[in-house]
């Protein structure tokens, strides 16, 4: 088991390195850097000025070197600028170059500086992630039990009316992306048009003080889209299990229907949805970005949009590494959980 987990973690680290390198490369393409220079300096900067700005700040080093420095495995640059000033990557906030550390990358906990928020990227990500964590917690709480119950109810009696109506509901919810359901929910429950103004159409207030009124709509919006998908998976898995020979064995052993579902079918039927739930995270992240933008909830997804649309390179890199890490961790959990749930796979 240990070697299996180690191997998985190895693959995960490799994936993370590849992904961050890609992000790093894309954000450090010359047009992006040029734009950065112009936003930092002024928009009428000459090409020469742009080059010297970039050169002075270490942006013109070879890509692998920059990546190594950002990661913290190569020593941070110390460059004598064209303006005569010495600049070092690790000397921030007026620190003397001599005092600065040699390495200052992600590995040393240095996430860089956000040009939009004028703040340390690491601390921005931490606070925003906390807010999104709160959102996700409630989303999972609504989505997972809801999806599993719908799926199991639909799947245990294939072709019945319950099955057909629940399946239609799940199809409808998978067909409704967050930006559609969000708009509909806000229109119906957030405005007075239909006489059902029960909730707030924005969740800004929920950042400090979340309550049912201001937090339910965003949670529901994210949960619904994922819910249909998981419910359909559960249903498929459940119907397959219910037609399995061993369910017939149980039935012909005289086991009552409720017991067949609970004792014989459920565990086998939940193996597949479990992995799906875990692999849903990349999609949930999408939902988070959309919903936080739509409801103006300034969490992690909102930060991503701000960083990306304002060319805030270091913040965007930080956001990317966190989301990649979240996705990979859930994949790891999914793999390990699958092994635990499925007794057919045992470690030799």
């Amino acid at each position: 088991m240990v070697s299996f987990i180690l191997r998985r973690i190895g693959i995960m680290v490799l994936t993370a390195l590849c992904l961050t390198f890609i992000v790093f490369w894309l954000t450090n393409l010359f047009p992006n850097l040029e734009k950065l220079a112009k936003t930092q300096g002024n928009f009428r900067m000459s090409d020469d000025a742009v080059l010297s700005y970039l050169g002075n700040n270490g942006y013109l080093q070879p890509l692998p070197v920059k990546y190594g420095q950002w990661l913290g495995v190569l020593p941070g640059y110390v460059i004598a600028g064209t303006d005569g000033q010495m600049r070092a990557r690790c000397a921030t906030g007026g620190q003397d170059i001599v005092d600065a550390a040699r390495f200052c990358g992600i590995l040393q906990g240095n996430w860089g500086y956000s040009t939009v928020f004028r703040e340390d990227a690491g601390s921005i990500i931490a606070t925003r992630l906390g807010l999104t964590g709160k959102l996700m917690f409630w989303v999972m709480l609504v989505m997972v039990p809801g999806a599993l119950i719908i799926g199991v109810m639909a799947g245990m009696n294939e072709g019945s009316r319950t099955d057909r109506s629940l399946s239609t509901v799940s199809i409808l919810s998978t067909a409704t992306p967050e930006y559609v359901s969000g708009v509909v929910f806000i229109s119906v429950f957030g405005t007075a048009t239909f006489g059902m103004q029960w909730f707030k159409g924005t969740a800004t207030a929920a950042m400090d003080d979340a309550n049912f009124e201001n937090f339910f709509l965003p949670v529901l919006t994210i949960a619904l889209y994922g819910m249909g998908y998981i419910a359909r998976m559960t249903r498929a898995s459940m119907t397959e299990v219910m037609t399995a020979q061993y369910i017939r064995t149980a039935r012909l052993k005289g086991v009552a229907f409720s017991q067949i579902v609970l004792r014989h079918a459920l565990r086998n039927a939940l193996i597949a949805p479990f992995t799906v739930i875990m692999l849903q995270f990349p999609f949930l992240l999408n939902g988070v970005v959309i919903v936080e933008t739509l409801f103006n909830y300034k969490g992690f997804g909102w930060t991503l949009v701000q960083a990306a649309s304002n060319n805030d390179i270091e913040l965007l890199l930080g956001v990317s590494i966190v989301s990649v890490f979240v996705v990979l961790t859930t994949q790891l959990i999914s793999d390990i959980g699958y092994v635990f749930l499925n007794p057919r796979i045992r470690i030799a």
């Binding site: 020979q245 064995t249 004792r263 007794p343």
Partner: peptide, 10 residues
């Protein structure tokens, strides 16, 4: 099918 008649998770 003996394999199919036994619940794999029990």
């Amino acid at each position: 099918e003996p394999m199919a008649s036994l619940n794999p998770a029990m």
